[in-house]
């Protein structure tokens, strides 16, 4: 697989339990997202979205299959990376349904925490945080506490945090769920901008009808199997 692919999975399966009670949450899932691309992953409740996200996020181990990240094989019927914590820290960004900012850190340190965890000097980490906050237009709230931010500002800070260690892939778990249409579309606009600017592959798990038309490519997941289709790719103002 070439380095031009952000994340690529082939035949990824996940089975919970054994014997008669076994449940196949994922069945031979294939997916490929290029750097700079934002794809949607949609499906009804219980279809396997969250399981796929957890496998992609190296939080749970798939049963079998193959997964590459930035061209490197990280899973091939078994993890090829010894420290998944470091993998998550340095190479995967996470955006959650709620921002889940650390309440006792200010905005800058919420973003700078990841580079600091990666043992980068504090000054460098904070400079990176300010760069991202500026790009996301929340630099004026750099010293504010998360509780002092609006919902939209908090979500932008969480996007900055996901980008802090320049990961090749970002996994966004329903990032627009609590937002109204205008703010949801604003978040999608930012994700697209960041994907392009930082050449990051972004997978957005959603069932938010407001943002589905904005994807150029969508993976439908149903009963643990994915089907790829072209999206509307509606322009974001």
């Amino acid at each position: 697989m070439g380095a031009s692919v952000g994340i690529h999975i082939e035949g990824l399966s996940k089975r919970y339990g054994e014997g008669d009670t076994a449940v196949d949450a994922l069945k031979e899932v294939n997916m490929s997202v290029a750097p700079g691309e934002v794809v949607g992953l949609i499906g009804p409740s219980g279809s396997g979205k969250t399981t796929l996200l957890k496998c992609l996020g190296a939080v749970i181990e798939p049963t079998r299959g193959r997964m590459t990240l930035g061209g490197e094989v990280i899973y091939d019927n078994g993890w090829k990376i010894s420290d998944l914590r470091v993998l998550r820290r340095d190479r995967i960004g996470f955006i959650f349904q709620a921002p889940y900012l650390i309440p006792f850190l200010d905005v800058t340190d919420n973003v700078a925490l990841l580079p600091m965890l990666a043992r980068r000097p504090n000054g460098e980490a904070r400079a990176r945080a300010l760069e991202l906050l500026t790009a996301l237009d929340v630099a004026h709230r750099a010293k504010a506490q998360p509780s002092e931010l609006s919902g939209g500002e908090q979500q932008r800070v969480s996007i900055a945090r996901a980008l802090a260690n320049k990961p090749p892939v970002i996994l966004a778990d329903e990032p627009t769920a609590p937002l109204d249409s205008e703010r949801a579309l604003a978040v999608m606009r930012i994700l697209n901008q960041m994907a392009t600017q930082y050449q990051t592959a972004i997978i957005v798990v959603t069932h938010d009808e407001k943002i589905i038309p904005t994807f150029k490519r969508i993976y439908h997941i149903r009963d643990g199997r994915t089907v790829e289709e072209a999206g509307e790719g509606r322009a974001l103002q």
């Binding site: 996020g57 470091v86 996470f94 889940y100 650390i102 965890l117 990666a118 945090r161």
Partner: peptide
């Protein structure tokens, strides 16, 4: 608990 889960997810070491 939720913040700790997030910290662990983003790669914070258990000892931290």
């Amino acid at each position: 608990i939720r913040e700790i889960a997030v910290l662990k997810l983003i790669g914070t070491h258990n000892r931290t």
